[in-house]
Design a protein around this nucleic acid. Structure first.
Lengths: 222, 222
DNA sequence: ATAATTATTTAGATTTGTCTAAATTTTTAT
DNA sequence: ATAAAAATTTAGACAAATCTAAATAATTAT
């Protein structure tokens, strides 16, 4: 029998998955902040997830996903990213709108639906933000991209991934014509605020703040 | 401000819409049967829907949709049928599987999503069962097709609509190679049980029961 | 018209997910 | 080491949607 995971429970384990990327067990307050709820509610839900063996949990310490919890999270992320790809590439949505809609679609958990959608889309490897799409077994490619902010003067990079889904970030990138695949050369770095002057797409020069430069993930060109 | 309608409430008004097609106000027991719940639960929910002005309701009498309730129902049905079309025509699902999946997808009620999906699909007029798809304003074409069971011997008909979403019905039709657009000629009618012998698709001869013949909706050929 | 049957509603309880306020534990600062 | 601050949990309550069992109303049959 397959374990039933409610939409709310799905949101929790997905949030735990993302927070776990920081390398530490996930604490109650951070989880509450991430899910825009109260610490008391988190404590309640954590008990239920532990009982379902989706997380390990020690009071006053924090929680981590179990092996099954991690797999379930990755299947949710798979659904989310495939729908994002569909919304962007097939329906023509701008990339700052797709996250919110995919948040709803991801909870429809019919396996055949998702696998047929994957096939229809041509088995994409990454979503429109450059994030890798887990396969049907919950395996995800671990791609370690460097942040543009840490790049070298004069070198050319290719934008591979965006480290944020915030519409505010994506809107700013749109305005600067930066997207996945854009070639960027770092022209100057200003010591005062660590802002960068870059040439984007072999064309225009623009300035980007330190904050923004840390959300642009790149690989070296050629 | 737009009224928020929960998934459960959506299921109720959709069921009321369908039961209302019989021409009578919808009573508690029929609604409970349709939704596989108890009459007591229906009474509770009916009060809430009345308060939201989605239905008219008189105790011990029955309920009908208000103008807004009817519009909301049709927008849900629009979502359902567009997703069915997508599942069938784009993802390649068999028509006996699409209803169940669309039951979940229909609750994602983002208007822009549905309108972009409609455009992507090429503004289809009917879903894979031949049921008309309401437009973005909740207007639905009223197509009155005849049931094959009432047809005339020797005449040729085109299958236009299937009056059931039951997988059992659709499976049977698949087996007999009957789908939307199939040309059918009534060869014989057996008085004993009102079953028919027909020629389907100008090819093979098959027998169909009275029950099945009443779920096949047709228009005249040519 | 009265009894029997059927349909509907009410009363009270349950589950899921949430909250506020108070209590407790842990960590940090002095 | 003790006090203050921060983090977490507990206690108790609430809303949505549901249920069972009992009560009430309407219909039908005699």
């Amino acid at each position: 029998m397959t374990l039933n995971i409610s939409s709310t429970e799905q949101n929790y384990i997905k949030a735990i998955y993302h927070l776990e990327q920081n390398g530490r067990p996930v604490n109650t307050n951070d989880l509450a902040a991430q899910l825009a709820t109260t610490p008391a509610s988190v404590t309640d839900m954590i008990k239920k997830l532990k009982q379902k063996k989706l997380i390990n949990y020690k009071a006053y310490y924090g929680c981590t996903l179990t092996e099954n919890g991690r797999k379930q999270s990755l299947l949710i992320i798979r659904r989310h990213r495939l729908w994002e790809y569909f919304l962007s590439k097939k329906l023509g949505f701008n990339w700052d709108a797709i996250h919110e809609i995919a948040e709803e679609l991801e909870h429809v958990s019919n396996t055949e639906l998702i696998n047929k959608l994957d096939a229809f889309l041509g088995y994409p490897k990454v979503d429109p933000h450059g994030d890798p799409i887990p396969d049907a077994n919950g395996n995800i490619a671990t791609i370690e991209h460097a942040v543009l902010g840490g790049g070298t003067l004069g070198k050319r990079y290719v934008v591979a991934q965006i480290g944020s889904q915030l519409p505010a970030v994506l809107e700013l990138l749109d305005q600067k014509h930066i997207k996945i695949g854009t070639i960027i050369e770092i022209k100057k770095r200003f010591d005062f605020d660590q802002s960068l002057e870059i040439k984007a797409g072999n064309k225009h020069i623009t300035q980007i703040s330190k904050e923004l430069s840390q959300h642009i993930l790149v690989k070296e060109h050629e």
